[in-house]
């Protein structure tokens, strides 16, 4: 109890509430109109995806290229439920079922594949996501290649904020728990942590399942905000997009993932004004950012903003 109401927690809670209040105010004053709200929705969904992938890739060190697959499970489950069950609770039921199914799939897939390491795990998870996509493309009740449309728009700014903040809080707390530290130890040295008595398989699968659970939520929110889903959305490139956010923000930095989600969304809205060369600019930015990060890191310039915490740690320890 004492810990729960610590000064730090109260401070963070106050910040979160204040942020919510400010944006809510801007929306109700119509300074944040529909267009900004869509951008905010994209940001929120990307934050959930990035933070949950960060738990798998950044904190536990398991390189997954199939996050979009989990997202699609949540999206399809929620869309099917909201389309077929006409009740006030179908939205919550949809999110819940989507997240649980996605977590279940994470469990089933995680147990065999998490034996693999590094790039092999990446390709196995990539294959898994592709298989999910192909199955969705060919099943009758998922609407085939056309996917599902006219999904009622239940998701609004309040729910987006609620689920985004919830995801961040839960994952942050998980990482700071003993389970989370076990996960980090696996990233640092799998053999050493096994020697220390940590059941590495259990924690790897646990991180995978939690990550999949929140990816499912993100998918559910996506489907009930953007009206339409189809299998093509959840392909390899979507997984890559999420990974880009995680890497730009910094592996193992939740704050980084949040900031990177916001920055990339802003960059994307800027790029809308250059329709002809939009993707060229985006890819150039991607390459330049990666090179610049490395340049700054190797030149030991104290400007690695996104990785600041890790930076302080490594340099402070010296």
């Amino acid at each position: 109890m004492k810990q729960l109401f610590s000064f730090k927690n109260l401070k963070y809670s106050a910040c979160v509430v204040a942020l919510f209040g400010v944006i809510q105010l801007l929306i109700s004053l119509n300074i944040f109109d529909d267009y900004y709200q869509i951008t905010i929705a994209t940001i929120c969904i990307n934050i959930i995806l990035a933070v949950s992938l960060n738990l798998i890739a950044g904190f536990t060190g398991q390189f997954s290229l199939g996050h979009a697959g989990f997202m699609s499970i949540g999206a399809y489950a929620c869309a099917l439920i909201t389309l077929n069950i006409n009740s006030n609770y179908s939205f919550f039921l949809g999110i819940f079922v989507g997240a649980i199914l996605s977590a279940l799939l994470g469990f089933v897939i995680g147990i065999p594949t998490l034996r693999l390491k590094g790039d092999y795990l990446a390709i196995a998870t990539l294959g898994m996501a592709e298989i999910i996509k192909i199955i969705a493309q060919n099943l009758e009740f998922t609407g085939g290649a056309a996917g599902l449309s006219d999904i009622p728009q239940y998701t609004n700014w309040v729910w987006l904020f609620f689920f985004t903040a919830g995801t961040v809080v839960v994952i942050k707390n998980f990482i700071n728990s003993s389970h989370g530290r076990a996960c980090v130890s696996i990233r640092e040295d799998e053999i050493a942590s096994e020697v220390m008595g940590i059941n590495t398989t259990k924690y790897k699968v646990l991180a995978f399942v939690i990550g999949a659970f929140f990816a499912g939520i993100a998918g559910a929110l996506y489907s009930t905000y953007f009206y339409v889903i189809n299998p093509g959305l959840f392909g390899f490139l979507k997984s890559v997009d999420i990974l880009v956010i995680v890497v730009i923000g910094g592996m193992g930095s939740i704050r980084g993932s949040i900031i990177a989600s916001i920055l990339l969304a802003i960059v994307s809205t800027y790029l809308q004004d250059f329709p002809e060369i939009r993707m060229i600019l985006y890819s150039l930015i991607l390459v330049v950012v990666m090179l610049a990060r490395e340049f700054i890191k190797t030149k030991k310039i104290n400007l690695d903003i996104l990785n600041i915490k890790k930076y302080i740690k490594t340099n402070g320890a010296r």
């Binding site: 869509i38 994209t42 953007f226 009206y227 889903i229 189809n230 809308q272 329709p275 002809e276 993707m279």
Partner: peptide
């Protein structure tokens, strides 16, 4: 002229 990247979410935004 705007580019929606063949992405429904982007098309909504545009």
């Amino acid at each position: 002229k705007q580019d929606n990247k063949t992405d429904p979410a982007e098309a909504t935004s545009i």
